[in-house]
Design a protein around this nucleic acid. Structure first.
Lengths: 318, 318
DNA sequence: TTGTAGGCGTTATCAG
DNA sequence: CTGATAACGCCTACAA
């Protein structure tokens, strides 16, 4: 493992000159510079990250922290973030679980984008309070150096349900996700608001965002003699489970029961009937967030953060 | 940002004593230790990762490098790896693109698991040659400290096609992925081998692993007056595209044309007909690989690496 | 244009 | 049991 020392020695220059050359400083003679670079390449020299980070107090890494790797939604956001960071010469580091808080506490990242409800407010606030910019997605958190980008869950669902009411539906049910989920509650709020304006009541079914829970909800409905005409599901996965169960029970969708979800996951287009849903352009969202983070890092001026773009995607299920 | 200095000063002890206490050494009096820990907590002290890494020559991070974040297959592998690493007190760092080689070159990770054909052999070999353990998945690479875990693509496809021949099929086509893909070629080898043993010929269709390319292939088949009785697709996504096109053209699956794929992605169970495929237990694979890496890191004895478990999953498409 | 030297925050060796 | 002190590898005033 060659160090800058070895490079300098072999080039017959001092360590500092080597450092200047390797860091593309102007104050070094072209000839010496070229010689140093050639030798660095020959020795396969790369600076030790830990040493550089310690000295410069920056790592060149941006942490992206997710709840788990299994979810289908994050991948596009990550890809959008990755592309933007790479264009700005920053490394993306995606992590999850205990590793996330370690990286944060030990300052192995210069900034962070958080998509993980498990990370405690305390850890996040402490990290940001040291001067590191922090972005929280789909979560409420205020503090110094903390920025957030939140999907307008409430507004989107509200608009959608209003349209469905215009279309003639008047007997709704809400298939809920876990009640501790930020998303879920806002979606429910929008749902209720729309109905309330038309003095419509609704049925509430508890689920937990999984396909399985949707399936269970479907079985539940099958047992009832009277079923809602429209089930709005807090996310697509539960909607898919619900449809699966209803279909097996001989219920026609959307003729007997109409269904819609939220998230626009890939699966939506491949089930029968294709699922109507509300979708976010995740890749674009990732890019916007990463760009906002870049702005903050580069000139410390928090530009106004644009909301992610959401839209209703009409397909066959309602 | 408090340093160990601050903790020591406030506790009225030397830096070294503080370090001992914080690192759970035995040679420090319980009372002083407790005091130091209390003050560390009070000051919200956490060691600077860069400094510690520089000194100890380890980072506690394991890099997992993927080709991109968009793919549907990796997530379970990642989750398996994550769980195992977390149980061993190591941080998982997932990265992609240029960031991956940076992290490798600058030695910001103690070991790596590589699932990214874009990372050059050169970078990988150089990294491993410095004494870092490296795992490559689904790729051929030999060298010091390099281990690999490869799916038996060839054997699995071979077994599957043999069974299909037993079942009576005798008119096959192969829908290929990109010919530079390691996976694809081995799958094709197994396919050819099985047919050859029965002196059967086959049709070859070029694709690139995407749903779109499968769809194109389907359109192509629709134009032909004579169609193969069985299309084996190099992966599930192309199979799904193929099925979509054939269905739209009025072809019945599996009655007119039988189809199968490889990977067992989530989508398979939600399309009509459900896709027969060959699947790997990805979560289990991730765990095995991570465990093998742990063994290597802990006692430097390369245990025999178990192959990932693959099996044929019969559903409706053939 | 190049070299000297100090220090980033830790850990770890060696004395006390 | 505790305390000086020397590294780890690099960057960067400042001096030459």
């Amino acid at each position: 493992m060659p160090t800058i020392r070895d490079v300098a020695k072999k080039a017959g220059v001092s360590i500092s000159t080597a450092s200047y050359a390797l860091n593309n400083q102007t104050n070094v003679h072209p000839d010496t510079k070229q010689k140093i670079l050639a030798i660095a390449k020959e020795l396969n020299y790369y600076p030790n990250g830990s040493a550089r980070n310690l000295k410069t107090k920056r790592t060149g890494n941006i942490g992206v922290f997710v709840y788990g790797f299994a979810g289908p939604i994050f991948s596009d956001v990550l890809e959008g973030i990755r592309q933007t960071l790479q264009a700005n010469n920053l490394n993306i580091i995606v992590s999850s679980g205990k590793a996330s808080s370690n990286l944060l506490k030990e300052r192995q990242v210069d900034g962070a984008i958080v998509f993980d409800g498990q990370l405690t407010d305390e850890v996040l606030i402490h990290y940001a309070s040291q001067g590191h910019p922090l972005f929280v997605l789909d979560r409420n958190l205020v503090g110094n150096n903390i920025y957030s980008s939140v999907i307008d869950n409430e507004g989107l669902v509200y608009r959608f349900i209003k349209e469905m009411i215009q279309k003639g539906y008047d007997d709704f049910a809400f298939l809920s996700g876990p009640t501790i989920a930020f998303n879920n509650n806002h979606r429910y709020d929008g749902f209720k608001q729309a109905l309330q304006e038309h003095r419509l009541s609704h049925t509430y079914i508890q689920g937990d965002f999984t396909i399985q829970s949707g399936y269970q909800a479907g079985l539940l409905l099958l047992k009832q003699d009277k079923r809602p005409r429209f089930v709005f599901c807090a996310n697509d996965e539960s909607a898919i489970g619900l449809i699966e169960a209803l279909k097996q029970g001989g219920v026609k969708i959307p003729e007997d029961v109409a269904v819609a979800g939220f998230d626009n996951i890939v699966l939506d287009e491949y089930i029968t009937p294709k699922l109507t849903t509300i979708g976010i352009d995740h890749m674009e969202w990732g890019k916007r967030v990463a760009n906002a983070l870049m702005d903050i890092i580069n000139d410390h001026i928090p530009k106004d953060i644009q909301e992610p773009i959401g839209k209703i995607i009409y397909r066959e299920s309602c």
